[in-house]
Design a protein around this nucleic acid. Structure first.
Lengths: 258, 258
DNA sequence: ATCTGTGCGTGATCTACATCACTGTCTTTT
DNA sequence: AAAAGACAGTGATGTAGATCACGCACAGAT
């Protein structure tokens, strides 16, 4: 029951996670920060070695196809998911199908942490954007583990603090700056922080549909299309395929400052 | 630098807290839940006795007049404040003076917790609404205390989780339901949960200005005035002085459901 | 008695954006 | 190869609500 099921991208029923591997030795590599870029809101980053190991013994990894729903707003919180590979969007939907994306999660990130801690149902929906791999830690095990490892708790408190902070930022953005151009510019600038600088301009994969951008900044798909072309016309940005090039970053920044 | 100083309500310069008492025996009464209503996001509620006592030994109480700023967005996080008496608003302001209220804090509530934990500057401003008394716990002491008392950390993690949840609710509200009547109805219903039921109708002190309501639901003062009169005309609500009476609760609920 | 500040009530405008309704690509499926 | 979905681009249109600009009431100061 509850909210309508968001459209998926694949014909395959994606809801069921497909088991991939059981966590243990193989996962430990992550502690050595072998893999992807180290986001500093990383689930394991900064955790003590014992606590980390304990958790990794519990977790077990599953993969999901694009479009899969990991968990859904309103459903009981079974446990925490840690995104290992791929990206996911955290969103909320209201009764008439309108959707707002709160955040695009990247590898390392914990999903559903706050719901697991309060014990209330998930307050957001997590949907996979591109084929992904996640580690799952059941609620009960998670609790057992963090009560045994005192230091871990502090770590998770700080992850939660960051989530709060981010949510406040979002409120500021959608509640305070009323014009779409400003919000879009803000978003592009924020997004491009993950990009690389070549020849003085920032390049970054903008692997999102206009619809998704619209849901991130709280506007309609059409308005995103129009505002993006406006930016292109003003030579502030350029779009080669799905690569975004910030031709004139200051121009965007001036929109935000206003 | 930083944001403009919000207007205050008193002629007296309210910025400086006036010391009132040093926490110790007198404060312990709170543990016995002697005072006000017990909000379940209460700072001390659910904390172990030792941890509670330890914290209360550290804290020291200050009073503030209405309009006082406890801390300001962007300023370094000195410590946590616990609201003992009175109410405070947590708000954020953007460069052109527009303000959004995230929450009205009531006694028991912790202010600035997430910033203290991340160690970043306060991400919100806290302003006193009516003469209030607060307990202050300096950041360093707070940390010392929670590392000594493992269980406390879990407690604070759950407070943070609640804050996240609330923030998500707000995003949903301002980002998803586009009509002001709906947001206002939602707000009134939410607000009236603190009210008392007499003769089948809910009565509650709506101790907020239209301006403040506007900043809570993300609209303009004038629109609040107009929408409230609309509600009155439809006999959904009644306003006697600052007492709000929900004459026709279902009517409001139907607006929200849509 | 007057002045000043703060909050409320209302009318008249103006516009940014949502919404609807298409068309044109480009994948993916079959 | 054909059909079916996704996505993107673009015009026309309507309207909710921001904004400006008042007047009024009431509280505290002096």
């Amino acid at each position: 029951m509850a909210s309508p099921i968001p459209a998926t991208r694949t014909a395959v029923p994606p809801w069921m996670p497909r088991p991939a591997s059981r966590g243990s030795a193989s996962q430990l590599a992550v502690l050595q920060k072998g893999s992807s870029k180290e986001s500093f809101s990383d689930f394991y980053e900064g955790l003590s070695e014992e606590a980390g190991k304990a958790l990794q013994k519990i977790e077990h990894t599953v993969s999901f196809p694009a479009g899969a729903i990991i968990f859904m707003e309103g459903h009981p919180a079974r446990g925490v998911y840690i995104l290992r590979q791929g990206r996911a969007k955290l969103l909320t939907t209201n009764s008439d199908g309108r959707t707002m994306i709160l955040k695009i999660a990247t590898p390392g990130e914990a999903l559903g942490l706050n719901s697991v801690i309060t014990g209330k149902p998930y307050d957001l929906t997590a949907e996979i954007l591109e084929p992904a791999e996640l580690a799952f830690i059941p609620r009960a095990d998670f609790f057992r583990c963090i009560t045994e490892h005192g230091d871990a708790c502090m770590h998770f408190a700080s992850l939660l603090s960051r989530d709060c902070h981010l949510a406040y930022d979002l409120v500021r953005s959608i509640g305070l700056c009323h014009s779409v151009p400003e919000r879009l510019a803000r978003f592009l600038l924020e997004w491009s922080t993950n990009g690389s600088v070549t020849d003085g301009v920032v390049r970054v994969k903008l692997a999102l549909t206009h619809e998704e951008i619209a849901q991130l900044i709280g506007t309609s798909r059409e308005t995103v299309t129009r505002t993006l072309s406006e930016f292109k016309k003003q030579r502030a940005i350029e779009l080669n395929g799905s690569t975004l090039v910030l031709r004139n970053k200051p121009a965007l920044e001036s929109l935000v400052a206003a």
